[in-house]
Design a protein around this nucleic acid. Structure first.
Length: 575
DNA sequence: GCCGTTTTCGGCCCGACTGTTTTCAGTCG
């Protein structure tokens, strides 16, 4: 079940969408969109808040507070119900078709009674759109194409999938003569957990060569649009890639523009407007004189707006502008802060590489310490046994310090059973240097049971880290339903860290919960859950998620020196 | 509908590309 904040955020977003479709004023639509985001990201639970309290949420005034209050009291918002009565849900869904926005969706509904994606497809094929104002042959073709695409790729792609495509294209374009700089921007640079499309930015005096090269890349299946400054293509996997080419002296302004979320960019441009300046991808301009006053790099652009440089992973209008204005931006955790990986596997259970191979690869990454945490017996398919664990421990002790002085910790990944119990008895667990404990089954327990289960795991004196806490698999399995505030309180109280699992289909704990957990005083471990040598490099995605949760190094136990980490790992154990 | 170091009223981000309405609306990012 969602947090009440998320439920209300969805309702407000729906209200904004329906208002846009019914021709509501654009600035009102924007306010509802902003309010939706503010409510979703608000730290405090809104259920139980009165209208006066609700109005303290940014972008929530009298009118929206009244709507939220109505929802909290009655479970519905009558104005939203009215709009729903006017616009069937299928019409809203029409706007998810690429190239079909609110205006055209409403035209289709009003003129032809089309209220679903399937209905639109049938109408086009039956020629029922002929003569409809604004719908020529090319538009029909584009809509059919968009519908096919929606069916095929509908979902966004995983962060690592988009990253691979982006890095390949950046490499190819960087090699083109005349290309001065090239980098990926957009949600990929912000490290969102899924990516809708890839934004690539390049600088060159002449854009033509770059535009030609990107259209001819082997992975490109289709050219969607092409002009002098922008070309859009789609890869054979259905991922859209937008290339923008600007003059070299616009690099900073363009990178700033193409990195921020829409909301972040609106905020930065508003700050510019208030200073009689204008910010675009070409630079920061003085409105009166038309002079360009900043554009070369992002630091300069933010600086002239009176802001420090804001890390890309924070650029979501989630409070970073206010923090920047007050000089309160966090110093975020980075890859360089990480001293070791605390959740990894070997071929003793379901890993692909041997202990020696994993340890050597970890040492190559320059780690000071490294934990081996193979699965425990209750994940029956892995066939772990006491003797195997003990034999591995001997091996680990022999290898300890043998690779570049890297210290090894012998751990295990326990299963948190339905009642919160874990695999081994306390006396056996005490032999491990550390324990991760994770949910691997019974994902759909009701919230009270799931909460109790996680709290009990935290209270186990041998459990140091809760692994992939929500157990979500992006695009495949929903997160488990728990009272996270209660779980976070238990973590803080018992000295149990929450994992930020860096595996790209997990990214778990998710960034929004990381931020809430941090406020509750929780500490974290950013781990790869590597089952093979290449997985160790997934750490970057965990770091991205941690940064999106505003995490600082002092809250990350595997950025600590080994002595401090060992002290933390002792938890409630005697010794 | 919200908001305020210019404002309690009058504003509200900016530009590229497409298709079609031959001068611009719609969509997207």
């Amino acid at each position: 079940m969602q947090r009440p904040n998320d439920v209300v955020a969805d309702l407000l977003q729906e209200y904004a969408d329906l208002m846009a479709i019914t021709g509501g004023e654009a600035f009102k639509v924007r306010v509802y969109e902003m309010a939706a985001r503010s409510v979703g990201g608000y730290a405090q639970d809104i259920s139980g808040m009165n209208p006066a309290g609700l109005r303290r949420i940014p972008n929530v005034g009298t009118s929206i507070a009244a709507k939220i209050d109505e929802y909290l009291r009655t479970g519905a918002i009558h104005q939203l119900e009215e709009l729903r009565g006017k616009v069937p849900a299928g019409v809203r869904r029409l706007t998810t078709i690429p190239s079909l926005g609110p205006k055209k969706a409403m035209t289709l509904y009003e003129e032809c009674g089309i209220g679903s994606v399937e209905g639109l497809e049938a109408a086009i094929r039956a020629g029922r759109l002929h003569g409809l104002h604004g719908f020529g042959a090319k538009t029909e073709e584009n809509l059919l194409h968009g519908i096919a695409l929606l069916h095929k790729t509908g979902a966004r792609v995983r962060l690592d999938v988009a990253m691979e495509v982006a890095e390949e294209i950046v490499d190819a374009l960087s090699a083109v003569p005349g290309c001065e700089r090239c980098a990926y921007a957009g949600s990929l640079r912000r490290m969102k957990d899924t990516i809708g499309d890839v934004d690539i930015l390049a600088t060159a005096a002449d854009s033509a060569a770059l535009m030609t090269v990107v259209q001819g890349l082997p992975a490109v299946a289709e050219v969607i649009a092409h002009g002098e400054t922008k070309t859009s293509v789609r890869t054979d996997t259905g991922l859209q890639v937008d290339l923008r080419v600007v003059a070299p002296d616009s690099w900073g302004a363009a990178l700033q523009y193409f990195t921020g979320s829409r909301a972040h960019n609106i905020r930065t441009r508003e700050i510019a407007v208030h200073q009689k300046l204008k910010l675009s991808e070409y630079g920061l301009f003085d409105v009166a004189s038309g002079d360009r006053i900043a554009s070369v790099d992002e630091e300069e652009v933010y600086g002239r707006l009176g802001l420090p440089w804001i890390p890309p992973t924070l650029r979501e209008d989630g409070g970073e502008i206010e923090a920047a204005l007050h000089g309160e931006l966090p110093i975020l955790i980075t890859d360089a802060d990480i001293r070791g990986d605390l959740h990894t596997h070997t071929d003793l259970t379901d890993g692909l590489a041997s202990l020696e191979e994993m340890v050597a690869a970890a040492a190559d990454r320059g780690y000071a310490y490294y934990a081996i945490t193979d699965h425990a017996p209750k994940l029956y398919m892995q066939r772990m046994a006491d003797a195997k664990a003990l034999a591995q421990r001997d091996q680990v002790r022999r290898l300890d310090g043998a690779c570049g002085g890297m210290r090894l910790l012998h751990g295990t990944e326990l299963n948190i059973g339905p009642d919160g119990e874990v695999d081994w008895p306390p006396e056996f667990l005490a032999g491990f240097d550390m324990c991760v404990a994770s949910i691997h089954s019974h994902f759909s327990q009701p919230r009270p049971e799931m909460t109790r289960r996680l709290v009990l795991a935290c209270e186990n004196p041998c459990v140091n880290i809760i692994g992939h806490p929500t157990a979500r698999l992006i695009g495949k399995r929903e997160p488990v339903d728990a009272d996270w505030a209660e779980v976070f309180a238990a973590c803080a109280r018992t000295g149990t860290a929450l994992e930020i699992n860096a595996f790209p289909d997990r990214l778990d704990l998710p960034a929004d919960l990381v931020r809430l957990a941090q406020r509750a005083g929780v500490v974290f471990a950013i781990d790869t859950d590597a089952h093979a040598v290449p997985h160790l490099a997934h750490l970057r995605y965990g770091i991205g998620t941690a940064q999106r949760g505003w995490l600082t190094p002092d809250r990350v136990i595997n950025s600590w020196p080994l002595s401090r980490l060992r002290k933390f790992l002792r938890k409630g154990r005697s010794a």
